[in-house]
Amino acid sequence: MNSKLSEKLRILLPSSGSLAEGSISFMAQKGINIEKESDRKLFGKIKGFPEVEIFFQRSGDIPLSIDRGMGHFGITGLDRYLEHCEGSKNSCVIKDNLKFGDSKLVVAVPDGWIDVTSISDLVEVCYEFKQNNNNLRLATKYPNLVRRKLDEFGITNVVLVTASGGLEAAPMIGYADIIADITVTGNTMKENNLRPLLDGVLFKSQAAFISSNLIPNKLKKSSNAIIDKINL
């Protein structure tokens, strides 16, 4: 950890989207009021905690920043954390359900696949693809999480195609056959002729409070004060 970082306790919060609003509200509910000079500024401070600094990052970048010691505490989606850092010894989840930022990682197939309604159907479809010398391709932003979950179902013949956005169009464009994506209502999937599987929820996620395991001793007093205040 660099020397500059270890001078103050650094908290990383999402910079945009519902997780950003939820994080600010969550902290405020706990009596931690974040002061930010303008909406464009990507750093701020907390009234009454001069030894703490706040940085705003994309929620997807926060897990690795914490894991690599660039911040001490952070709020991000549990799905994002597990995707990048599950099993890491450098960081941990202090609380995994902050009661906002709900989302589900769901597997969806083309609506015309009337024979496929559950994950177990996919096992047979994988074999069908294999017999035709193809692999079933699944597009997702969460390859690690999806791979682990599919392994649990014994589905190993799927080729994961990592994509960053617009996954619902992947089967129509042709770079994947099915998708696993975050959804709240499933409407976008439906409008793009995709149907979530009945047991296709691979993972349910909320905002999580995460911590580095490398907080220096001299910042322990500040970090304990934050933990006490947030009452996790």
Binding site: D111, G112, V125, P171, N193
Partner: peptide, 14 residues
């Protein structure tokens, strides 16, 4: 449903 985009799967297989 069966006349929508089925990707690489054949209608007969489905």
């Amino acid at each position: 449903k069966l006349s929508s985009d089925l990707g690489m799967r054949a209608q007969e297989d489905i």
